[in-house]
């Protein structure tokens, strides 16, 4: 994708989904976002959805730039606000599939409040978080994902904070689909993303990715391949387990997998239900009768 313009004119396999005129992209060599982006494009095609019915919303940061390269209706919004924008978009046009592409700082620091509430409401969207453990675009500052003790430009002697575990957070807030992969798990990630996009409700896919330029170089993973090797050596796949049993731990085995796939009525389902006049009176709701079998 990052070929110089003088290269022989070969079409990218995802040409139909790319704004090729905007390539080369801004991502550094060795960055994991491009790989994840490629998986997202492949997953969109695998869903078979009409491309006019797919939208991508992003906030600010390196991952947020995905929205600028994908050739579907795409919205590059303000820092942290991709989810509430996507909420409005989805509710206004329910037949579309809405994807949110976000980095760790965008999604969980400044956007953390929106994340937990969208998961709680079970808004039908797929949130893809590329977690590179720091703020890459602004040069490598500490984020809510930065592991304890890891060095960044704003934690030069090591981060004094414990990070969030995004998958546990998503699960606790009610996400119906939760998985964690790294940028080396291309096939599995693509399959996960495909299921997540087709899944009604709030789906969350976390992808650990290397940021050699900003994070790696301050944490003994200076070369592009260092963290990829690290992912390769440490990853252990465990599907269908409670994310609480798979804490994100860089000191031990790195547990990845499809953790959660469960059913819960979406916000739109419940909105229709509460306005149907058939809900009954709280606390004696007759919810089960109306939501089972959906």
């Amino acid at each position: 994708m990052n070929q110089p313009s003088t290269a022989p004119c070969m079409q990218h396999p995802q040409e139909e989904l790319l704004r090729s005129e905007r390539i080369p992209h801004i991502w550094c060599s060795g960055c994991g976002i491009g790989t994840v982006f490629s998986c997202v494009l492949a997953a969109i095609r695998k869903t078979g959805l009409p491309l006019d019915d797919v939208a991508m919303v992003s906030g600010i940061g390196c991952t947020g730039r995905m929205a600028g390269y994908i050739k579907v209706d795409s919205y590059h919004t303000t820092h942290g606000r991709a989810i509430p924008f996507a909420t409005g978009l989805k509710l206004a046009r329910p037949q579309g599939a809405v994807l949110v592409a976000s980095g760790d700082g965008d999604l969980i620091a400044i956007g953390g409040n929106h994340f937990i509430h969208a998961a709680r409401r079970n808004i039908d969207m797929t949130v893809i978080c590329v977690n590179n453990l720091n703020y890459g675009m602004t040069g490598g500052q500490q984020a809510p994902s930065t592991p304890f003790g890891a060095k960044t430009t704003t934690s030069p002697t090591g981060s004094p904070e414990e990070p969030f575990d995004f998958c546990q957070l998503a699960a606790a807030c009610g996400a119906v689909y939760v998985s964690r992969w790294t940028s080396i798990h291309i096939r599995r990630l693509t399959e996960s993303l495909t299921r997540a996009i087709l899944k009604p409700g709030f789906s969350f896919v976390e992808v650990l990715a290397a940021c050699p330029t900003a994070f790696g170089r301050r944490n003994r993973m200076r070369a592009a391949l260092d963290m990829i090797k690290f992912f390769h050596e440490r990853s252990v796949i465990k599907n269908n387990i409670d994310p609480r049993e798979a804490p994100l731990d860089f000191e031990g085995p790195l547990l990845v997998g499809d953790f959660i796939d469960r059913d819960r009525p979406t916000f739109s389902d419940n909105y229709a239900l509460v306005h149907s006049g058939q809900l009954g009176e709280w606390p004696d709701l007759e919810r089960q009768k109306h939501t089972s079998g959906q």
């Binding site: 919004t77 989810i83 924008f85 909420t87 409005g88 978009l89 989805k90 509710l91 206004a92």
Partner: peptide
């Protein structure tokens, strides 16, 4: 979030 949702809905 309210303001962001408005914009999303308008583009919807």
């Amino acid at each position: 979030a309210s303001m962001a949702a408005l914009l999303g809905a308008s583009w919807g």
